[in-house]
Amino acid sequence: MSTPLRLKELSKKADLLTGGHRLCAGCGAPIAIRQVLLAAEVPLVASNATGCLEVSTTIYPYTAWKIPWIHTAFENAAATISGVEAMYKALKKKGRVDRKIKFIAFGGDGGTYDIGFQSLSGAMERRHDIVYICYDNGAYMNTGIQRSSATPLGANTTTCPAGSVIHGKQQPRKNLTKIMAAHNIPYAAQASPAHWRDLMTKVRKALDVDGPAFINILAPCNRGWRTPTHNAVELCRIAADTCFWPLYEYENGRLTINYKPKEKKPVTEFLKTQGRFKHLFSPDSQDLLKQAQENVDREWENLLREEACWREEAETKGEG
């Protein structure tokens, strides 16, 4: 029987990511990864795309991982883990392995949304029994805060610096979770470490399905977001409350929204907490600010509408 998702019970499990890794103080990524590893009830093998997490957890001759872990280049974490999973299946068929093992790939938004995108898409399409976890901090933080396709509209990065003419990134972010769901995989979800029980439930569902699963997890970066070190979890909470980072899941294509804020806060509540959006609050950036709100509203309303359609269909079929 699996460990109940209560902190008291979970704390009795072994932490599979040790301290002593060299991610920045207050980084959101290890909070998310610890929760992912704690949720798992089966042995895991991981591959990790280049990024902060990969570099900082395994500075030679140290590793913070207590699971078999494979370093991969930026573009092929999903391809590597696909190969490992295929080998496992072959060995199982030959009777050389009988244990149940699950395969997981980690990548940041740069390694997932951009550079590792084609290998990820391929792995999903080939229906490997893997889970891909993206920790999304919204830029190439490891190499010095360059914009990625996950960088939100208006954010100041070193490759889209906010100045008097251009006010940060001019393009909205790509919606990768939906792109992954569009691969018609059995499970795709979006989560945040502030809602730890929701995140862990999603990890368990992703590991349980037979076939590929994808989870996109928000991971604040105090260096890139220009925030103090103590509020990574609070920022995740505000992101969900403003619907900047809605928490939802697609199970066999069917959408469920897992968290609906009682009162949807304006997106400025999220933006104003971070130095990367500071310039948006000057009088000549009002149109970008308005656009940011419109984008969030549109995405949220689309999610609500889509969920309502699914509910309606279930009701007509009498499933309730």
Binding site: K8, S11, A25, R34, A232
Partner: peptide, 20 residues
């Protein structure tokens, strides 16, 4: 109050917990 939020949110696995 032993809520263990410090433990689940610690990025550095630096809150020790024994027997809950």
């Amino acid at each position: 109050i032993q809520c263990l939020f410090c433990w689940i949110y610690c990025p550095d696995s630096s809150v020790t917990v024994s027997d809950g």
